[in-house]
Design a protein around this nucleic acid. Structure first.
Lengths: 166, 166
DNA sequence: CTCAGTTGGTTGAAGCTACAACTAAGACCT
DNA sequence: AGGTCTTAGTTGTAGCTTCAACCAACTGAG
């Protein structure tokens, strides 16, 4: 069985995507670190909580939405808890589960931070593209996520957790 | 001065791109770690060296091509050197500079590893897209890189350094 | 009821990256 | 020559992620 190499066009697209993968996280982190002492992952986590009912989510659910492993999430939430941005308490319905809830300070942090972050995203990504390219990017990333995101959390965020899950 | 928020379409595109940013590196690292005990960054670094004349590049040049900071590169190259995949020696023309050269073992590693890696990239990214989407992805990432890659190394790799070197 | 298996989450250690500080060599100016 | 500035790279440390191990609580079969 022999390898099917990439064509020139495919190779260029891949190399550029790989470059974006390498550089964009740094761009996001730098702005958020400077303006809010937050990594992009931490900001995104807080943002997910801020949109959840009662600003509360179970760790597993939060892990899915942020595309993180549970150990990683556990460490990050502990640090955010130390900073007073998040509160953690056991889930009444399921003794195994832990709920993470955004505190008022956490909510204020998101509100304060969002404008600068959105401006940054706009400046480095969205405004670099035409309207048609934004649509294309949406479709392309959707197709890629279908391959790399096992549970497809991103693609059907509406599914929510109606009791039974799945 | 007030924030210009993202439209629904823009927000979806951004959230999906952010998800790819979060998930794709793990997909690449996992395969390479398992099959070659290499991170994607290390593989890419070796691949850049393998394509260079005499399989040699100055640290600064290698840093540009891999989108890495010099400290990061220095650490990684030291580890690769310990493993015998790369050799380091002072540049004769410039006493400050260091050259990194791929060893025979390093070359063999790239040759052995490339097929599995390309197959992985194909499976998770390229084959998820139509031919037109590959072109679109190439253009979109080019536009984004123009904003986030200060020196535009990715976009004009032919530029080389004028005078000396080669 | 009970025990095996699964699910949800935490923890500790190892490894990688970022940042800051530092060294050394070349370039420039006079 | 001499002094200053810049460039090239290394090193140490702190912080974050990953991986493996672990524990507690739920579930289901008998």
């Amino acid at each position: 069985m022999q390898t099917e190499w990439l064509s020139d066009e495919e190779r260029v697209a891949w190399v550029r995507l790989a470059a974006v993968l390498e550089l964009l996280p740094g761009v996001l982190d730098t702005q958020l670190r400077r303006d809010a002492e937050l990594t992009h992952f931490e900001y995104f986590l807080l943002a997910m909580l801020s949109e959840a009912p009662d600003r509360t989510l179970r760790m597993t659910s939060l892990a899915q939405r942020t595309h993180a492993t549970l150990p990683r999430l556990s460490h990050v939430v502990r640090r955010l808890e130390d900073r007073g941005l998040v509160r953690r308490f056991p889930c009444p319905q399921d003794g195994r589960a832990t709920n993470a809830q955004l505190t008022d300070a956490g909510w204020a942090k998101v509100v304060d931070t969002a404008p600068g972050h959105v401006t940054n995203v706009r400046h480095h990504v969205i405004d670099a593209l035409g309207a048609d390219q934004v649509t294309q990017l949406s479709e392309i990333t959707e197709a890629i996520l279908a391959r790399i995101d096992p549970d497809g959390v991103v693609m059907s965020p509406q599914r929510g957790h109606p009791s039974g899950r799945r």
